[in-house]
């Protein structure tokens, strides 16, 4: 099953954030709750956790790109 990693709502007046760094590469195994990607709003830097265990199947938004709240940043494939 594919589980998307979604850019969360990071604050009421935040519409988008930047991908700072992917901590995992495509094909890497990830555990639910493990930090996979660092994102930055104008004010803060946050680490997003994997929503499920599996393999990071694809990265949709690479580092240094900006993504709107609600956008799929990448996909985790579970067994």
């Amino acid at each position: 099953m594919d589980v998307p990693i979604v850019m969360p709502q990071l604050g009421v007046d935040i519409e988008e954030a930047q991908i700072d760094e992917w901590l995992k590469a495509e094909g890497d195994a990830v555990e639910e709750g493990e930090q996979v990607v660092i994102v930055t709003t104008p004010k803060v830097t946050l680490e997003l956790e994997a929503p499920a265990s599996g393999v990071l199947k694809s990265i949709a938004i690479p580092a240094d790109e900006i993504a709107k709240v609600g956008t799929t940043l990448g996909i985790i494939e579970t067994e």
Binding site: Q18, D20, T40, D64
Partner: peptide
Amino acid sequence: SRVRQLAKKARHGIDENGGLHSPMRAVTIR
């Protein structure tokens, strides 16, 4: 990433169409 992000940002707050850039896309006071 802060510096890389800054390098990509617009230096003016108004975009080509006269609209406002979001603070993620243009240089802010911060």
